[in-house]
Amino acid sequence: MIAATLESVMILDKAEQLAKAVVLSDIAEQYRKCYYALQQDSEVQTLIRQFTEMKERYEEVQRFGKYHPDYTSVSKQMRELKRAVDLHEKIAAFKKAENDLQKLLDEISVIMGAEISPAIKVPTGNPFFDAGGCGGGCGSGGSCGCKKTG
């Protein structure tokens, strides 16, 4: 059992302050605003529901590939719905806000890990951060500063 030291209590307090700062940030506020707009828009909810249903149908058709009798029509419908979802103003705004918030959280994680040790690997889900700038597979021949692989 680890006893709570004054230092660990102070670290937890600072972590809580950081979390509150993120929650109160403009980036988090924009995320909540866009999320709320999505939830309140019946057109968006219908579009998302249609996309989810079509995705299930599409996955079933994909199991058989071009041999499925509905392969062409379902594939076409799926592409059209995906495009409608991607181009919808509120969905696009939400995706941008979501990416901005994720980027902020990734940056915080990387900074915290680097402060402890440059050897710490912080999984962010972002190849730029995960690989320390570039995974070496960028195709630039190392001109970006990464280690050329291959």
Rank of each mutant, 00 (worst) to 15 (best):
106 D>Y: 11
102 Q>M: 12
100 D>G: 03
96 K>H: 08
96 K>N: 05
84 A>V: 11
93 A>E: 04
86 D>K: 13
108 I>S: 04
82 K>I: 07
78 M>H: 06
95 K>R: 15
94 F>C: 04
83 R>A: 12
103 K>Y: 07
81 L>T: 07
79 R>N: 12
99 N>M: 10
89 E>T: 09
81 L>H: 00
102 Q>I: 05
86 D>Y: 09
96 K>A: 03
88 H>Y: 04
75 S>R: 09
106 D>E: 15
106 D>H: 14
91 I>C: 00
97 A>W: 00
107 E>V: 14
96 K>G: 05
85 V>D: 06
95 K>A: 06
103 K>W: 13
83 R>L: 13
76 K>E: 10
106 D>M: 06
75 S>N: 04
93 A>H: 08
75 S>T: 02
77 Q>H: 13
97 A>Q: 00
73 S>T: 10
108 I>K: 04
79 R>Q: 09
78 M>S: 05
102 Q>V: 10
85 V>T: 11
108 I>P: 02
82 K>V: 06
93 A>G: 03
83 R>V: 12
81 L>E: 05
96 K>F: 07
88 H>K: 08
105 L>K: 05
106 D>I: 09
89 E>G: 11
104 L>F: 10
86 D>I: 03
80 E>C: 10
74 V>D: 06
84 A>Y: 03
87 L>W: 13
107 E>M: 10
81 L>M: 02
75 S>M: 04
79 R>A: 10
102 Q>L: 09
78 M>C: 02
77 Q>I: 00
91 I>V: 12
99 N>Y: 14
104 L>M: 15
103 K>P: 03
93 A>T: 01
85 V>N: 01
89 E>C: 08
81 L>A: 06
85 V>L: 03
76 K>G: 01
77 Q>T: 12
84 A>W: 00
84 A>P: 02
105 L>Y: 10
84 A>Q: 15
73 S>I: 11
104 L>P: 06
90 K>S: 08
92 A>S: 14
93 A>I: 01
105 L>F: 10
81 L>G: 02
87 L>K: 15
83 R>Q: 14
77 Q>L: 09
84 A>L: 05
74 V>I: 13
85 V>A: 05
87 L>N: 15
94 F>N: 02
95 K>G: 01
100 D>V: 01
90 K>N: 06
94 F>V: 10
84 A>G: 14
92 A>M: 09
100 D>A: 11
76 K>Q: 08
107 E>I: 12
84 A>C: 13
76 K>A: 11
98 E>V: 06
91 I>M: 04
98 E>L: 07
98 E>G: 04
91 I>N: 00
105 L>Q: 12
101 L>H: 03
96 K>W: 03
77 Q>D: 13
107 E>R: 15
95 K>S: 01
102 Q>D: 10
88 H>G: 01
93 A>L: 05
100 D>P: 08
98 E>H: 08
85 V>C: 05
105 L>M: 14
82 K>Y: 10
106 D>T: 10
81 L>Y: 02
93 A>S: 06
99 N>Q: 13
89 E>P: 07
108 I>D: 12
74 V>M: 00
85 V>I: 06
93 A>F: 01
79 R>K: 14
95 K>Y: 12
95 K>L: 04
77 Q>F: 01
82 K>D: 11
94 F>E: 00
104 L>H: 09
103 K>E: 14
89 E>S: 13
